[in-house]
């Protein structure tokens, strides 16, 4: 059941939104696919719901100096259809498998990142594109790499009054891929997921979901794989390093630590095989 004594406001502009979100127990509402569920379950009891869907500054997908600007309110369905984002395949795949049709029409990328779920289907692939998160707040605007945005399960660097304005993606890599395990083929949260990208200089980036409190990158694996032709020996070694590097919690209902460790290997291997098939990483 939803909190009974909650107020709702839909600010007309960014400044108003920021001042509203500075209030105690205020909560930003975008697509609502996480927030409304959490309110119903009593995990979130806001006194004030600030509906940010009308904020023009948070909309849109536009090209920007070789990269792409993705507004926080861009929905999964928009990501899937966006011609500009097709070069960022992993995030298109992640957005395309999230929830179901109706969820993808509402769920936003800012919401998925801001919710800071360990397994966010947009957040995990987004990481491999090295985006900057653009945050707007009482002190104005600030940027930081997405990798530094998460602070724990459900926790981020956002301060009261701050909201995600959008993401600045650098020019796309040559290759990227997102894969995940679910218990059914349809709607499910990822039990374990992995995204990988290879840029034109052969730099490899790897992130995983549902193996740590936050979506996480693995520098030691990236280092091992980057700047050299991918051989099966190197891939095998990297898979072992990745598998050893993760320490998933044992309480997940979606996958056990042993399975996640095995899938870390399988997914990395599959992703890099695919890269080789497509002519990258040589």
């Amino acid at each position: 059941m939803m909190p009974l004594h909650m107020e709702y406001v839909k600010p007309g502009g960014l400044a108003e939104a920021v001042s509203l979100l500075r209030q105690d127990d205020a909560c930003a509402l975008a697509g609502g696919t996480d927030v409304v569920v959490q309110m119903r379950e009593g995990k979130l009891r806001p006194r004030l719901v600030v509906d940010i869907k009308g904020l023009a500054e948070l909309q849109g997908i536009t090209g920007q100096s070789g990269g792409v600007w993705v507004g926080a309110l861009v929905t999964m369905a928009e990501i899937v259809k966006s011609p500009l984002l097709q070069a960022y395949r992993a995030v298109v795949q992640g957005a395309g498998c999230m929830g179901c049709c109706e969820i993808r029409h509402r769920a936003t990328i800012g919401g998925n990142v801001g919710n800071a779920s360990p397994s966010g289907d947009a957040a995990v692939p987004l990481l491999v594109f090295h985006p900057q998160v653009v945050i707007h707040g009482p002190g104005g605007q600030r940027h930081l790499p997405l990798a530094n945005f998460f602070r724990g399960a459900g926790k981020t660097v956002l301060q009261p009054g701050e909201l995600i304005k959008g993401f600045l993606l650098p020019p796309p890599p040559a290759f990227s891929l997102y894969m995940r395990h679910t218990r059914v083929k349809g709607m499910d949260l990822a039990g374990v997921s992995l995204a990988a990208a290879i840029d034109r200089q052969g730099q490899v980036t790897v992130s995983m979901g549902a193996v740590a409190p936050t979506p996480t990158r693995f520098p030691q694996v990236e280092e091992l794989l980057s700047g050299r032709p991918l051989s099966w020996e190197v891939i095998a070694q990297a898979a072992e390093v990745l598998s050893a590097a993760i320490t998933p919690r044992a309480t997940s209902l979606r996958a056990t630590p042993a399975y996640k460790k095995e899938m870390a290997k399988v997914f990395l291997h599959t992703a890099l095989s695919r890269a080789l098939e497509e002519g990258f990483g040589q």
Partner: peptide, 28 residues
């Protein structure tokens, strides 16, 4: 292939919702 109620040691059900008790969908 996918269903089963999970009880913890105290007899609490860990997967009461359809988020964590998965049934076959149209894709399956």
């Amino acid at each position: 292939i996918c269903e089963g109620i999970v009880f913890d040691r105290e007899g609490r059900i860990r997967n009461p919702s359809l988020t964590d008790y998965k049934v076959p969908g149209v894709e399956d």
